[in-house]
């Protein structure tokens, strides 16, 4: 049986960490062989959404989690993956294992995953969706307001000065503008739609939309920090070229339909 225990250190003398979700380490022990594995650097450091430890427990296919406290959401996920949860556990990891093997703890009942849509789940989904809409709303509102100004003050002559109608150049420029700005794709659809009304060709608009979502100059340092500079540069460079290629293909196929 594989047991995951939240802990503040990386050996059996470490104490059980009270909160499972924000635990810094997990010790995963096979109770038959007593072989154990330390999962360090869970990234929570006492903060965060608290789902990393839960994800690890599920990923490593443990049978049981022993901890001080686990959030209701974490409990729900563990339960959905048939992982037993025992809370209120205190002491060092070694003591806890010994108590567990002596049968000092009451086994929790095996949980049954509930796939039905309950009222609570629906309310939660509505709340989360509302929050997600609320998060993107300020930028969308700002974009719509800006487009209003754009339509009044920027004339079609100005736009045609930049997007000349040369398909190759327009596609390149569209991809360049799209790469400079980043954000929710929905904004690129709205801006792209308005650019079309201004007479910008579909090549340029499509390249703009594709580069907006696939290339991110602003987030390049963050991507490089997470995955290395070479990865970030190669991926963004390829995505830039592909955004122009796909734009050309899309409009080409569309013209045949």
């Amino acid at each position: 049986m594989k047991i995951a225990i939240s802990t503040d250190g990386h050996d059996l003398n470490s104490r059980v960490e009270h909160r499972f979700g924000t635990s810094r380490y997990l010790i995963i022990i096979d109770t038959e062989t007593m072989a154990f594995e330390i999962v360090p650097d869970l990234g929570a450091n006492g903060q965060g959404s608290g789902m990393q430890a839960v994800a690890v427990a599920i990923d490593r296919k443990v049978d049981m989690v022993l901890t001080g406290y686990c959030s209701p959401m974490g409990e729900e996920y563990l339960s959905a993956h048939n992982i037993k949860l025992l809370t209120g556990v205190e002491g060092t990891v070694g003591e806890v294992i010994a108590r567990y093997q002596n049968g000092d703890y009451d086994y929790p009942r095996p949980s049954v995953p509930d796939d039905r849509i309950s009222r609570d789940k629906l309310i939660h989904a509505l709340k989360v969706s509302g929050e997600q809409i609320f998060k993107i709303m300020p930028i969308i509102l700002g974009v719509i307001l800006l487009i209003g100004l754009f339509q009044v003050f920027v004339t079609e002559e100005w736009v045609s000065f930049i997007f000349t109608g040369n398909r190759a150049l327009d596609t390149f420029l569209g991809a360049c503008f799209g790469s400079l700005i980043a954000g929710n794709p929905i904004n690129s659809y709205i801006i792209g739609g308005e650019l079309l009304d201004f007479g910008v060709g579909l090549f340029g608009v499509t390249a703009f939309i594709l580069a907006w979502v696939n290339v991110g100059l602003i987030q390049l340092p963050a991507e490089a920090a997470a995955l290395c500079w070479r990865f970030a540069l190669v991926r963004n460079g390829l995505s830039f070229v592909l955004s122009m290629l796909i734009a050309t293909l899309t409009v080409g196929i569309l013209s045949f339909i």
Binding site: Y77, K121, L122, L126
Partner: peptide, 19 residues
């Protein structure tokens, strides 16, 4: 968009993705 978001939130969790 909102209706689709609610549906996705009902049936998918972050752990589906990590899995």
């Amino acid at each position: 968009v909102f209706i689709l978001m609610v549906f996705l939130n009902l049936f998918l969790t972050p752990l589906h993705i990590t899995k």
